[in-house]
Design a protein around this nucleic acid. Structure first.
Length: 720
DNA sequence: GAGTTTGAAACT
DNA sequence: CAGTTTCAAACTC
């Protein structure tokens, strides 16, 4: 793994240690405060602190992560890692990044009966508003969320939840309200998945990887994010993309002992604590009717009259939770006693639209974007985006009618809105920014890659492979050529399109994906999938794209809650994720038997399960990474378009000068696992392409063996 | 609190 | 896939 990347530290004066210490202190203070409010076990805090120290001491300590869950939160400071010591922590939760909507109330409803659930998934949550962001605290020790909000709220959250006590039942909080309306926002990780012993080995591997990534991410964040506002959100365990989805939530719920989490309890809890935590200050008004109706804070108190709470109109149903007593719904069937009905209905809906319960908000902002955009003097308009986009005609995207606005995300190319004035980012701005950023990213990436490659060549290591790589990556412009050209051309010259080629090459390099993809020809990961994909595959890809982007930033938080079915199929899935899924499912079943969580018991097997997989796997497999990188940019429609459009140009432009190679490029730092270097390299390169040089190296560090991925992919393809 | 507006979900 | 209807939240008064 590479740790020492030199990022851009906004506070050069502060050493990492100092920052961490500060963070720790801050955390302690917060913790004390919180403790007063609710009795939280000290252990949580301690773990958190410990982790931070570990991090300081040696990144290598990350091994701890393997066995333990880690949380990273950094309120202001770069990062705070919380880990449970985890002997017992077998469960790893990860990947959640979530953007907090304004669902102020929605969050937490953890029922603790006075005690914190052993497991993490608690969230606290999350407000997004920058102002309050710092105030947020990480309550749940198990969760780690990294939030970076350079400008807005960009959050990269990685949540690792572990069962501290090891005892068991993970009491996961169910995200009650978050993202209700927009299911999306919450990405929850399957916590329990890891628990299953059978998968443990995989888990370890996965965890290891994830940990490394997490560390990298953290490091990256600390280095690069600098002073950026890091928001810690107390959110349900979901991830960066965190993310997000009610599916995950369901998963959590399933895991949770029913008794612990009940709607009522949740509400109680939330009502009791919500105020204390300053949840989401962002919207007092939100759901005002509901809020007014009840004391608390439960998130979604629906008011359905005709749908019996069995349609997506119902926030509770959409969020995968049962209606509670506080709901004002009439003729509600969204209750545990009608479990079967609920599940059937869910399945029906998913059959129509597999992504119906998937998170609508995906984080697509990459670190690269954040950084580069900043450097460029651009605002980073979007920390996330609505997957399908809004369709506002009259609200101008400035009212909560607009899902984008409601989710505090800017409109994107996916939106069909008219007269968009979304304060979080207008559609046009989105496209423009993406274009600029992508160009710059491409340039940087090329530089970094070229440098590395040159070095490789010099060393005569993997000469052939490298050459091959170079060609594939930058077919038109050989590294040398590149050198010859001056650095003068930053953005303008490099067209995103170039990467397209490289991306292809990457794919080609990645047999599993490439093979799987019916049409590798397309430069974009999305394209790679069969056109037929409109169905599941497409959806998945689309999400993957988003996730990918997310991953770049957070890598931990896949936002996508894929469908369970898909998860297996998606090439991108990590082995771990798969494993997670399987374990999760098993666990879920167990849980279901045991208790009735607020979340639909069946959710795990439904699409949500897949989502779990995604979220659960903080780290994306190499293959995925490669794809991801390529797609990260692609994820944005705008980018995709740009890339595609540019592709021809690239070809034409083959000679386009590339800026000088930087010997110092981070790539050098990258440590490649014993695995096939070529693949790795490519993946890394692809990563680089997407994220930019700064980012690339770190993210790429160690790729998990492709094998699992391949398998998963194969499976997927078969299904397809 | 009633009524209106809005846009997503559902339906055709 | 497009158009229409239904729905419940968001909003206004």
């Amino acid at each position: 793994m590479i740790r020492g990347r030199k990022g851009r530290c906004r506070r050069p004066g502060l050493s990492k240690m100092e920052r961490i210490l500060r963070s720790s202190q801050h955390l302690k203070r917060r913790w004390k405060r919180l403790k007063r409010m609710e009795a939280l076990p000290n252990s949580h805090l301690m773990f958190a602190l410990n982790f931070g120290s570990d991090l300081l001491v040696d990144h290598a300590s990350r091994q701890q992560c393997y066995t333990s869950g880690a949380q990273v939160a950094h309120p202001h400071e770069p990062i705070q890692l919380k880990t449970y010591n985890g002997s017992e922590v077998s469960q790893l939760q990860r990947g959640m990044s979530r953007r907090c909507l304004q669902f102020e109330q929605a969050q937490h409803e953890i029922i603790m009966d006075g005690t914190y659930p052993p497991t993490p998934a608690i969230n606290l949550f999350g407000s997004i508003s920058p102002a309050s962001s710092t105030e947020l605290e990480i309550l749940d020790s198990s969760q780690v969320e990294l939030t970076i909000s350079p400008y807005k709220e960009q959050t990269m959250t990685a949540i690792f939840s572990a069962d501290i006590s090891g005892k068991s039942p993970l009491a996961v909080s169910k995200p009650s309200g978050i993202g209700l309306h927009l299911n999306s926002i919450v990405n929850t990780l399957p916590m329990g998945s890891s628990a299953s012993k059978p998968t443990m080995s995989h888990h370890l591997v996965e965890n290891k990887i994830s940990c490394s990534k997490l560390l990298n991410l953290v490091e990256r964040v600390s280095l690069t994010a600098g002073d950026r506002v890091l928001q810690t959100k107390a959110s349900l365990a979901t991830s960066p993309a965190t993310s997000e989805s009610f599916h995950n939530m369901e998963f959590f719920n399933n895991l949770q002992p029913p008794e612990q989490v009940t709607p009522h309890n949740k509400r109680r809890f939330s009502s009791e604590h919500a105020g204390n935590f300053e949840w989401s200050p962002s919207n007092p008004k939100k759901k005002r009717k509901k809020a007014s109706s009840t004391v608390g804070d439960d998130c979604k108190r629906c008011n359905c009259r005709k749908t019996k709470c069995l349609k997506l109109y119902c926030d509770c149903f959409a969020a995968g939770i049962y209606c509670a007593g506080t709901c004002a719904c009439q003729g509600c069937f969204n209750r545990p006693e009608y479990d079967e009905t609920v599940l059937e209905t869910r399945q029906q809906i998913e059959s129509r639209n597999p992504l119906a319960f998937a998170p609508k908000i995906v984080q697509h902002v990459t670190e690269f974007h954040a950084i580069d955009a900043e450097d460029l003097g651009l605002f980073t308009p979007y920390s996330g985006k609505h997957k399908t986009g809004c369709n506002c005609k009259k609200s101008m995207c400035v009212k909560k009618y607009c899902e984008c606005y409601q989710a505090n995300v800017g409109c994107s190319n996916a939106c069909r809105c008219e007269g968009c004035r979304n304060i979080h980012g207008r559609k046009e701005e989105y496209a423009m920014t993406q274009e600029i950023v992508s160009k710059r990213a491409n340039e940087e990436n090329l530089e970094g890659m070229a440098g590395e490659k040159l070095k490789m060549v010099a060393n005569n290591k993997f000469l052939h492979a490298e050459l091959y790589d170079l060609r594939s990556l930058t077919p038109p412009t050989p590294s040398f050529e590149y050198l010859s050209h001056g650095k003068d051309t930053p953005k303008s010259r490099l067209l995103p399109g170039r990467y397209v080629l490289s991306s292809e090459s990457d794919f080609s390099m990645l047999p599993s994906y490439a093979k799987s993809s019916s049409s590798p020809s397309n430069s974009h990961g999305n394209d790679m999938l069969p056109n037929t994909s409109k169905t599941l595959d497409m959806a998945i890809l689309g999400q993957e794209l988003d996730y990918n982007s997310t991953e770049i930033t957070g890598q931990f938080s896949p936002q996508f809650d894929g469908l369970a079915d898909f998860s297996d199929q998606t090439p991108l899935l990590n082995p771990s994720s798969i494993m997670m899924a399987s374990s999760a499912s098993s666990k879920t079943q167990d849980k279901a038997n045991d208790s009735q969580p607020q979340v639909y018991p069946g959710s795990a097997r439904l699409s949500p399960s897949s989502s779990h997989c995604w979220r659960s796997s903080p780290i994306t497999p190499m293959t995925r990474l490669g794809e991801t990188k390529n797609q990260a940019q692609d994820s944005d429609c705008g980018l995709c378009d740009i890339l595609e459009d540019d592709t021809p140009e690239i070809l034409k432009d083959s000679s386009a000068p590339i800026t000088s190679v930087k010997s110092s490029s981070p790539n050098k730092k990258r440590v490649s696992p014993p695995q096939s270097h070529t693949r790795e390299f490519q993946s890394s390169s692809s990563a680089g392409l997407k994220s930019g040089r700064k980012f690339i190296l770190k993210s790429v560090p160690s790729f998990p063996p492709l094998t699992p991925c391949l398998d998963s992919k194969d499976c997927t393809r078969k299904k397809c």
